[in-house]
């Protein structure tokens, strides 16, 4: 089951919904991993949708690509990573006309970053939908070195850039599409609790 009910959370955290087909002459869907399942469900609700849809999909080791291709979207792109796909995303958003509908599905990191691209391209928030699917991993910014560590699933964790032991502060920046990681053993160096899985 790829759906996860996030616990009651803080004010800076985005709230994700459920994708629904909307009228429009062009549709852009960006998803990673189990986010594909949200697109498959969307397609099953509106048979005419896919002929006007561009799908940008990052499998992250899953095997949904063939199912997405079988939907026969107008354009389909499979990217090896978000970073590798971002220029294409920017181009598509830059070329878009008024009324483009954007659908984001998958991990928080993917949705947050793609949301930033869409908003900075001038897509109104009311034309962007999100649906969380799959991993509850968080994208974390180290507040000390500013480095981003992707796909963090435990708290605490080690910054992949500066190596500090960080705890996951429940504070989210849309601009960075990341939660904040703060040194956990600053007041007692070396005293780092055993990492536990997020939301456990």
């Amino acid at each position: 089951m790829s759906k996860f009910q996030f616990p009651e959370s803080i004010a800076s955290r985005p709230v994700y919904g459920t994708l629904e087909p909307r009228p429009g002459k062009a549709h852009l869907m960006i998803a990673d991993a189990e986010g594909a399942e949200a697109i498959l469900e969307l397609a099953s609700q509106d048979a005419a949708l896919m002929a006007k849809t561009h799908i940008i999909y990052i499998p992250k080791g899953t095997d949904f690509s063939e199912k997405l291709r079988a939907l026969k979207p107008a354009q389909f792109y499979e990217g090896p990573s978000y970073d590798a796909s971002v220029q294409r995303i920017q181009k598509v958003l830059g070329d878009a006309h008024m009324g483009l509908q954007v659908y984001l599905a998958g991990t928080e990191g993917l949705m947050g970053q793609a949301m930033n691209e869409a908003v900075s391209a001038g897509i109104p928030a009311s034309a962007i939908q999100t649906e969380h699917r799959g991993s509850v991993a968080r994208r974390m910014q180290c507040v000390h070195c500013k480095g981003i560590t992707e796909d963090v699933v435990t708290d605490p964790f080690v910054c992949s850039h500066c190596g500090l032991n960080l705890f996951v502060r429940d504070h989210y920046s849309r601009r960075l599409a990341a939660f904040q990681g703060v040194c956990i053993d600053a007041e007692d160096p070396g005293n780092v609790p055993e990492p536990v899985e997020l939301y456990k």
Binding site: A11, S12, Q141, R169, D170, H171, S173, R174, R175, L176
Partner: peptide, 13 residues
Amino acid sequence: FDIGMNFFEWHAP
């Protein structure tokens, strides 16, 4: 970290 946030967001913690 907080730049660009609204009043409720930057007070979230």
